[in-house]
Design a protein around this nucleic acid. Structure first.
Lengths: 253, 253
DNA sequence: CGGACATTTGACAAGCTTCAAGAGAAGTGG
DNA sequence: CCACTTCTCTTGAAGCTTGTCAAATGTCCG
């Protein structure tokens, strides 16, 4: 009964012009020249099984990835095993920039579901900025957007209580998936287990469970068969103080 | 008895070539051409008094700022006043990128001490990427580094207990200031009050105070006369699981 | 059917928050 | 220069949110 995505979406197409993501209206359009550069910049594709590592913590590999299909997350751990999920990575997201730049200890990236990714080698990044400044600008855009997500999560983890945290996470993910066109019949795919949610919110597994149960009994969410439904999104938004952003095209590398 | 910085450091010099920050070894060097571009890109300077806003939350102004002197912080608040400090802004740091890009609700920036800042107008940012790709690359570098800091804070707030959080904050700030050459006689400037620390760590003021007292009694820190001293940095590092990064030049816009 | 793993629930402990109030430090105005 | 106000720091006590421990139930898969 496990939902197995059709093979077609599990691998990146050989040519970026056939990219399913670009055919949606969630991403900005590019010129043929830019598309050609992106395709030449891409050094390969990668398929990662659910639960496996895309980037190993403390072992940055100097590569950038655009997630094509599936779910993943960025995380950091402490030596005794405590793990913080920094944010969830959905199709179209770019990961690995901090590996290339950042001076802080690196984060890991792990696949939640089977994932398909486009791989870019970091050593050509400077060339990209030099020859295609527009793409460099876009990468900065994506980087700033990534930081915004982490800012939001830090506000959530630092200031909101358990109920508000769960409400925020559900709203945030629902809206992101909706914008990717992944909502169908009032629900979106939801492959996370409660441990993922707990690690993302800085809560214990048990307390996460109790909080989810409480919200479910109030009719604020319904997670079943790997899908999430929000029967009363406005109540959740109020609980979480979630402010919806106007839909907006994002760059895609 | 209040420490008043000499007037000279409180204002940006008219020419970037006279910038005190560039004369330290903490920042990467630039070509004369790049320096000229930066100076032309700079639309003005700004002096902000302690406690005043550099960027008002929810009122992004489309400007970028490089902090020249003083301390500031980025923050977000909830409607009932709960405030999360996202990270502290020290000399050389660039703020305002997310205002220009991010699709998430904006953050505010507030001065801790009197601050001097260089101002850049966001609408010329694309021109910068186009004509000086190296500077565009540097901005992306700074953006990724900024995200790394927030990643670290999220790990701290989500997973560490109160003692570890305080230890982490003190170590992190001490090392950053040290790299800026601001350590003197085994101590660094430290203008934060306990409310700042509490808001940065997601703790209540009272608990922050008790945790600080405990660490001070253990001889792990000493805050007095606006300066921070760490008599036993290695013990603090172990407590916080703080891993020192090799000193490294960072770009300066 | 059996084993591994995720979810659920209860009971108890602990860390952290809130409330309250006093002491100290710093700035203001007479 | 001193009284007064205001803000910050400090400490104690009580309560609540959240974490930990333990065990049962449910689900998936070989």
């Amino acid at each position: 009964m496990h939902h197995v995505p059709p093979l077609a979406v599990r691998f990146c197409p050989p040519h970026c012009s056939d990219c399913r993501l670009r055919q949606t209206d969630a991403f900005t359009s590019v010129t043929p020249q830019q598309l050609a550069f992106i395709e030449s910049f891409r050094s390969g594709v990668l398929a990662v099984s659910a639960g496996a590592a895309v980037i190993r913590e403390y072992a940055p590999n100097g590569k950038l990835f655009t997630l094509y299909a599936g779910w993943a997350f960025r995380y950091k751990t402490l030596s005794d095993g405590r793990r913080q999920i920094l944010n969830f990575v959905l199709p179209g997201d770019l990961v690995g920039l901090q590996q290339e730049f950042g001076d802080s200890a690196a984060h890991g990236v792990e696949a939640v579901t089977d994932c398909a990714l486009c791989v870019f080698t970091g050593d050509r990044l400077w060339e990209l900025f030099r020859t295609e400044p527009r793409l460099g600008y876009d990468i900065t855009w994506l980087s700033a957007r990534g930081e915004s997500f982490v800012d939001d999560n830090l506000l959530t983890t630092g200031q909101r209580n358990a109920t508000e945290r769960v409400a925020m996470l559900l709203m945030h993910l629902y809206r992101r998936l909706e914008r990717l066109g992944l909502a169908e019949g009032g629900s979106v795919p939801f492959p996370l287990n409660q441990q993922h949610i707990a690690d993302a919110l800085g809560l214990s597994l048990v307390h996460t469970n109790k909080t989810l149960r409480r919200l479910a009994k109030l009719g604020l969410h319904d997670i079943a068969h790997g899908r999430l439904r929000l029967p009363n999104p406005h109540a959740l938004e109020r609980l979480a103080e979630y402010y919806d952003q106007p839909a907006r095209c994002v760059p895609l590398l």
